[in-house]
Simulated scan of single mutants.
Amino acid sequence: MKEAVYIGRNPSSQPDLEELLGGVALGDHDAFAALYDAVAGPVLGVVRAVVRDPAQSEEVAQDVLVEVWRTAPRYRRERGSAVNWVLTLAHQRAVDRVRWAEASAARERRAALLDRSPDYDHVAEEVEAGLEREQVRRCLRTLTEVQRQSVTLAYYGGLTYRQVAEDLALPLGTVKTRLRDGLIRLRDCLGVSG
């Protein structure tokens, strides 16, 4: 009986969407089926124009039609046509989906940045530097006293060869020889290829 009311009323054989929406508001499943058939295509078109992704568009369109079923009692004829009300819901849900997808992608990018291990590990660098310093100290202990003093004054004290010679009261040639020999021994001890 209700089916005849919804389909036979409009001379153009198009169902009266306001009437159908009124039936949906009362929980009429036949009215919802007729409304669904009438608006599903336009709803999908509006959603697809905003969302772009076909699979997501179908999902959003389905959500919109479920929303129409749930919220049909809120429709007010004086505020606009039924088709505009449904398509406005579709547009709003599509925009919500795009915003959600963009926010989700932004969260994933931020999480990925937080999960990245740093390019420079300060702790590992500190440990490595400490080990290298200890190895240099150990190798310095293998030098003769004059070699160790010469290397220490020249490379850690920043003195020139001449200043090292004056500081140790040695001839410049002797300091240069001691430095050369000391550096060769350090290189061999540290395992540095020459």
Rank of each mutant, 00 (worst) to 15 (best):
V5N: 11
D28W: 02
R9A: 12
R79L: 14
A154L: 06
G191P: 00
W69C: 02
E132K: 14
Y6V: 05
G27E: 04
S57T: 08
H29Q: 12
G157D: 03
V46C: 02
S81K: 13
A61C: 03
D188Y: 03
E18I: 05
C139P: 01
Q135D: 08
R93V: 02
A112D: 13
A55R: 13
D30P: 02
Y155E: 14
L35F: 05
Y161D: 13
D121N: 14
F32A: 03
A55E: 15
D63Q: 14
H122A: 15
E59F: 08
A124Y: 05
T88M: 08
D16M: 11
V51K: 10
R133H: 11
R185T: 12
V127T: 13
Q62Y: 08
A101Q: 14
E132P: 00
L21E: 03
T142M: 04
L21T: 08
D96K: 06
Q135L: 15
N10A: 11
A82T: 04
G158Q: 09
E58T: 05
T144P: 00
L35S: 01
C139F: 02
V83C: 10
D96R: 08
G157H: 08
R178F: 09
V60A: 01
K176H: 07
F32M: 12
A106V: 06
L17N: 03
R9N: 10
D115T: 09
D181Y: 03
A38L: 05
E166Q: 15
R99I: 09
V64K: 11
G23V: 07
E78M: 09
A82P: 01
D115I: 04
T144V: 04
V39I: 11
I7M: 15
D115V: 06
R137M: 09
Y6I: 08
W100E: 15
G8M: 06
V83Q: 14
V50W: 01
V98S: 02
E59G: 12
E78Y: 07
W69M: 10
A40Q: 11
L179F: 00
W85M: 08
L172T: 08
A112M: 07
D53S: 13
V68P: 03
R180Q: 11
D96L: 04
Y6A: 01
T160F: 03
L65A: 01
I184D: 11
S104I: 08
A38V: 10
A154Y: 02
L35T: 04
T152M: 12
G22V: 07
F32G: 03
Q135I: 05
H91K: 14
D115G: 12
L159E: 04
R109T: 06
Q14A: 14
D167K: 14
